[in-house]
Nucleic acid binder design. Structure first.
Length: 420
RNA sequence: GUGAGCGUAGCUCAGCUGGUUAGAGCACCGGUCUGUGGAACCGGGGGUCGUGGGUUCAAGUCCCAUCGCUCACCCCA
């Protein structure tokens, strides 16, 4: 049997209902904030991510699904959404739109990791980007929006961790400090971290390897926050002040680093307390240099992404139900075999005002009602010789038991009136 | 990529220390039931026991390998 590829899943039933609930919540709140939806391709030229996300990141080094197309171009299934959105911003000259431009999106992302709870190879994110503004207000706006989306879904066990990774110059000073501090003890670091010492020392802070953690504690390595320049520090404080004013609870996490190189200044994650190892529901940050990394003019930006599957897991852990998919309005039951075609015609005549389906085999009335119930229909319509002759249907409300024999037009009126 | 746990019907599982033709519940199909449902009862379809090899008179059960799933490491949404 051919099965879905490792780390991918068919989405249906309850899982899809959770999925839609998260996407629709994002749509509602993002559009409330004035954002326009964008759908970028799920694959891009590999360099979009190599240059955008960063050569030294785990995502680029070991998690991308890349392939060569027939023309010899290197393409990559998007591992995240922001780089593609900024590429689109540049490609469509959105810098001439009224600034800043607010965009939101939802769609699949791909990372070649070993699957586990809350981690799949194809997963889904919703995201929000504000491009063309450097003010701390938009950082706070973005954080507050993602926080409120999660709250609106009913989630309680949320923690917002806010940090700052500073400006590039601050990071250079910090990286120099880290190298100087850690290099004498390099042999005690994990293999990955020894490599990071050369390529990107800050990423060592992200390591959870016990030897790395011990060494960092023992050396009393100072956090990035101590190295913020004046501009970044003022920005960070302003963001905190705006968040307090908006009533968004957060804790400052001096160690927050983020796995994507394009982040500067604000950087945050939202965690849930009952998710297991992969506890981040979402994260984001400011990426003022990204446009230039992609070959564009300076264009400051800030944004976030939520992991749809993880939010769904968190909702389930808290016993929260998704918005259910709408069921059938009407199930048409032919009472005689020769009336099956008439049942199709009757059901088809209700589309699309009513969700109507019909039985392919003649049923006795009792069986027909039972079947309608199993199909999840609110109403059953019996079509027997009498109804056929009169051009009517005997329609029964399966909840109340109320029954009427009506013309198709009257059926529409009754049901639409009843469900309005 | 590393480690651990688990693979019996569409789903949830039973199958004792290896011993007839591998079972149950749910679901599905049909009947009891020729114009009114949610019940009950009866019947039916559906399994190469993940796969391959080995031990044995005999393997769903023991051993090895392999594949898959899950969780964890790593990292992140």
């Amino acid at each position: 049997m051919i099965r879905a590829v490792k780390g991918t899943h068919d989405l249906l039933g309850t899982a899809l209902a959770y999925h839609r609930t998260v996407v629709e919540a994002t749509r509602r709140w993002a559009e409330a904030a004035g954002a326009e939806e964008i759908a970028t391709p799920i694959f891009e030229h590999t360099e979009v991510f190599e240059r955008g996300v960063g050569q030294t990141t785990d995502i680029v080094q070991k998690e991308m699904f890349s392939f060569t197309d027939r023309g010899g171009r290197s393409l990559t299934l998007r591992p995240e959404g922001t780089a593609g959105v900024v590429r689109a911003y540049l490609e469509h000259g959105m810098k001439v739109w009224p600034q800043p431009v607010r965009l939101w999106y939802a769609g699949p992302m791909f990372r070649a990791e070993r699957p586990q709870k809350g981690r799949q190879r194809q997963f889904h994110q919703t995201g929000y980007e504000v491009i063309g503004a450097a003010e701390p207000e938009v950082d706070a706006e973005a954080v507050a929006l993602s926080w409120r989306i999660l709250e609106s879904l009913g989630l309680r066990g949320l923690t917002l961790k806010l940090g700052s990774v500073g400006d590039p110059a601050d990071r250079e000073r910090y990286n120099a400090y880290l190298r100087e501090r850690l290099e004498p003890h390099a042999e005690r670091l994990s293999e990955d971290s020894r490599r990071r010492l050369q390529t990107n020392p800050m990423r060592i802070l992200d390591s959870k390897a016990p030897p790395d953690r011990e060494l960092l504690t023992e050396l009393r390595v100072r956090p990035m926050l101590d190295f913020l320049g004046d501009a970044a520090r003022q920005h960070f404080e302003a963001v905190q002040a705006r968040l307090r004013a908006l009533g968004v609870p957060f804790e400052v996490d001096p160690a927050i680093v983020r796995g994507l190189d394009y982040y500067v200044r604000s950087s945050w994650e939202i965690h849930h307390d009952r998710l297991g190892a992969q506890s981040a529901l979402g994260g984001g940050g400011r990426y003022d240099g990204l446009s230039e990394l992609l070959g564009g003019p300076p264009a400051p930006g800030v944004g976030w992404a939520l992991g749809v599957e993880r939010v769904a897991l968190a909702m389930q852990a808290e016993g929260l139900s998704p918005v259910p998919a709408p069921g059938l309005d009407l199930y048409v039951v032919p009472l005689e075999p020769e009336l099956v075609p008439r049942a199709l015609e009757a059901a088809a005549a209700f589309w699309p005002e009513l969700r109507a389906q019909y039985a392919l085999k003649a049923r006795k009335p009792g069986k027909g009602l039972q079947e309608a119930e199993k199909k999840g229909a609110r109403y059953a319509a019996l079509l027997g010789p009498d109804e056929a002759a009169a051009g009517k249907l005997t329609v029964k409300d399966l909840k109340t038991g109320e029954q009427r024999t009506l013309s198709p037009e009257e059926v529409k009126e009754w049901i639409r009136g009843g469900t309005a």
